[in-house]
Amino acid sequence: MSHRNTFRIWMAIAVLLFAAGEAMALSDAYKGNIYNPGILKPIDSKLRVKVGMEAPDFNLPSVAGERVTLRSYRGKKNVVLSFVPAAWTPVCSDQWPGYNIVKDLFDGHDAILLGITVDSIPTLFSWTNQMGKLWFPVLSDFWPHGAVADRYGVLRSDGTSERALFVIDKQGIIRYIDVHDINQRPSLEDLVKELDKLR
């Protein structure tokens, strides 16, 4: 057996062990309604913005029925954009409920959270209803499909978005970008540390 073949087999074992061992705590709130896509390619897009740039503006419909622009927060609030890949999937279904109990952390940093997915409003309505009442706007980047995600460079090749966080200051400048491994939830403390830097 060549060293190359041995290496390939061991690599396959390592990948399978990782996949088999990947675990996601999932709330019973969703019962059996979460579709599990399995382990996905961690990142499948290329950023089109960078720290220090002015954040591209957008105008998206929210689940609450209003339209939300990034520009409307200029000079008033720091903004955290939380792109999540898709409704009714693991990890995503846990991430926002966590943010939902830390409104005081965002308030303390004079920040608003905007949740964005490429799903339609009806889908987002049904999905976010399972999370309890969310204090932050949830925006639909459904049509033109994923246009905002694409403008930021976080639209994946399958039409979902990355699991990505953007921290934008009151001047509209991007101060932090975390395009996270889609299979894992970003840690809350990392985000809070970045918000601390805005003070």
Partner: peptide
């Protein structure tokens, strides 16, 4: 989990 609505 902190992220679980039912746990909350």
């Amino acid at each position: 989990s902190m992220y679980c609505p039912y746990c909350q």
